[in-house]
Amino acid sequence: MKNLLEYMGFERERYHTVWISGSEGEKFAAEMTGVVEDALRLGPCRKMRDETWAI
């Protein structure tokens, strides 16, 4: 999936797969922070977005 998305032109960092057990709250928090940081760094994804459909 990651490879396919990158192939279609989406940055790798936009897609995450992480193994987190139900007891690993701290890891979950850290990963989510990472996801947000990655997304903020990359900025809004305008790819495959048709401007006439902007809401």
């Binding site: 192939y7 279609m8 032109g9 989406f10 940055e11 790819k47 495959m48």
Partner: peptide
């Protein structure tokens, strides 16, 4: 050939196709 493109170019290429 597609893999050799830059990521922006690939996005543009597939955007064209899918549209």
């Amino acid at each position: 050939r597609i893999e050799a493109m830059g990521i922006g170019e690939r996005g543009e290429f597939f955007s064209q196709i899918f549209s």
